[in-house]
Design a protein around this nucleic acid. Structure first.
Length: 345
DNA sequence: CTTGATTTAGCGGTATCAGT
DNA sequence: ACTGATACCGCTAAATCAAG
């Protein structure tokens, strides 16, 4: 009854849904101010109850204001939805498919990938998440010479949930499709591929703070040998509203749990935290295997009706997962994997 | 200046609360 | 059940103050 993986202090969530890469898009990378892009601007609330703070960041005369709607700031859970959307978009781009600002998703996929329940209550929460995402407004003023340009935008522009009317019990009230229109700037940021690949274990992180810290480390440490940061600046970068001592306590719990994918964390004297990449991160990124069009055609024949490019993306994920081995025959390996899948389900 | 007492600030811990 | 934020509690060290 008890899953070993979820036992113990602050366990990881079970890995119930393996799929393609996930990507993170830094909101401010889209803003054409180079020195801003290098900064961290916490946009998403870590709190589990409505956060109605107005966040303001100022740097070199540029001011950024994040204003929540009455529903509160978008939370880091809501960001998961955004990550999912961006990842879907990136998968389509990488597969060479046509993309647009509006994407259509299956509600079930979204809920599973973001580690939510699939109960009826989950639909309500998904709805609220969209409201927070669309309601959180970002305002910037950029001064160039004698002119000052002030722009405002939301995290997503619009959203739509389509569900069957709950007339009969048969399929009644089921959420069938979700369409999300990303804001223009976010869409352009994804198109220009200014995204960061996240560990597939990202969604297994339970704590919001763990997710946030991972994002920060992913961006700041990357593949470097280490990153040392003071608790104070980490507190600021994370956007946590907790006092420093409570925040420090959370960090120590994180160190104790040692859940962070790709990175190891330790406390150092002087109120410092050091992040070092785990062993497998050091290796240079491997070149993904190329598949011939013939192999894709053969895969299409093996699993008719399936999107072969999605299959390819899935297979690449599995390949990367297994340590990115050098393949003598990528086509053969791919077709073998597809055959196994076609036979299984 | 030294001594002692009092306030202040920071830390850690625990309980509570409102969210998922 | 578990999270982050908050409010307490007790403890310690530094800072402040009031005489001697």
């Amino acid at each position: 009854m008890s899953r070993a993986i979820s036992r113990g202090a602050g366990g990881l969530l079970p890995d119930r849904h393996r799929q393609g890469d996930f990507f993170l898009c830094d909101v401010f990378d889209a803003i054409p101010k180079d020195d801003l892009a290098s900064m961290e601007h916490p946009l998403f609330s870590l709190a589990t109850r409505p956060d109605r703070r107005i966040l303001t960041y100022a740097h070199n005369g540029v001011e950024i204001t994040v204003t929540p709607s009455v529903k509160g700031l978008a939370t880091i859970h809501d960001k998961d939805i955004l990550i999912f959307c961006i990842s879907q978009l990136m998968a389509a781009i990488n597969a060479g498919r046509q993309v647009s600002r509006t994407l259509y998703l299956k509600a079930h996929d979204l809920l599973i990938a973001t580690n939510r329940e699939t109960s009826g209550d989950a639909y309500r929460r998904l709805r609220e998440a969209f409201e927070r995402l669309a309601g959180t407004r970002i305002t910037t003023n950029i001064v160039t010479g004698t002119q000052e340009t002030t722009t405002g935008f939301g995290l997503i522009e619009s959203w739509e949930i389509v569900r069957n009317t709950p007339k009969n019990a048969k399929g009644g009230g089921r959420m069938v499709s979700v369409s999300v229109t990303l804001s223009d700037w976010l869409y352009r940021a994804v198109l220009s591929k200014s995204v960061l690949t996240l560990s597939r274990d990202y969604f297994r992180l339970r704590k919001p703070l763990e997710r946030r810290i991972y994002e920060l480390t992913r961006k700041h440490c990357g593949r470097q040998e280490g990153w040392t940061v003071s608790v104070e600046t980490l507190l600021k970068k994370s956007g946590s509203a907790s006092p420093r001592r409570v925040f420090r306590r959370m960090l120590r719990d994180m160190i104790e749990a040692d859940h962070l994918p790709d990175y190891r964390m330790e406390e150092q004297p002087g109120d410092l935290i050091r992040f070092t990449p785990r062993a497998q991160m050091i290796e240079a990124p491997a070149i993904p295997p190329r598949l011939s069009t013939e192999a894709l055609e053969a895969a299409r024949a093996l699993m008719p009706g399936r999107d072969v490019y999605a299959l390819e993306a899935d297979w690449r994920a599995v390949w990367a997962r297994s340590g990115a081995p050098r393949l003598r025959s990528p086509d053969g390996a791919f077709l073998g994997w597809v055959k196994k899948r076609a036979g299984g389900a």
